[in-house]
Design a protein around this nucleic acid. Sequence first.
DNA 1: AATCGTCTCAACCGCTCGCAG
DNA 2: ACTGCGAGCGGTTGAGACGAT
Length: 253
Amino acid sequence: MGRQPCCDKVGLKRGPWTAEEDKKLINFILTNGQCCWRALPKLAGLLRCGKSCRLRWTNYLRPDLKRGLLSESEEKLVIDLHAQLGNRWSKIASQLPGRTDNEIKNHWNTHIKKKLKKMGIDPVTHRPITPSDYPDPMKAQSPAKDQEPPSTPSSSSATTQDTKLEDMDRAPPTTTANSQQSSSSSSSSDGIFDDLHLPPMDWSYDGNIDLISLLQDDFKWEDLLVKDEGNSNTTAMDPLNQASYDWTYEFLS
DNA sequence: AATCGTCTCAACCGCTCGCAG
DNA sequence: ACTGCGAGCGGTTGAGACGAT
């Protein structure tokens, strides 16, 4: 009740992070580990709230993050897990090493959801959407679908959103989006990664590396890499292989 | 070249959860 | 059992990038 804000908002910086702020945060965490986020900003000399620092670290600065679009197999795994777990992005993300809940959530909302809709699959229920599902417009407002206004994608009463969907597949392969992702926060954080000489590859981080060593001059980030040898993602993909595929996969292949 | 519309995603907000006292 | 606090989660927003006209 009346919980106090996580931080004194007065005088705190908001918005995109600068390279300088990123450096401070990285240096502090690599030196001290992830101690209480609330106290971190002051200790690290940042004019940010702890929440903001935590998000920045977990969603962008962590060395074990993968970058770039989800692979096809990752996407399938996300769909499978979403069918089981719903919008529990953090749970889903825990099954995809190197991916964050925010990233998966964004990818779901911008790509997968539209893809499924276009295929006539309800992204919430993972079942086919047919006109017979909503024979009565009034029923179409059933509570279970509060997240997804019951649309009739195939019908002519397509919303503007639906109309947009029609255009989705001509969206260019987002290599640009990829390259942007790392460069796009870019404006704010390109610099920091340049400084750290992070190779544009997938990262593996078992949580046991000696963080301090990361600050050593002779440290090689490559040491943390997992070779992308064939089934590199076995850890992540095993559950997928063993799972009884949701039938919706058929549409994605 | 300029303008407009759309898309993407980093970041924020508000709420819930879990734990300690 | 209750309260307060820190952390985490999911939904939403807005700035910037990009394509179309």
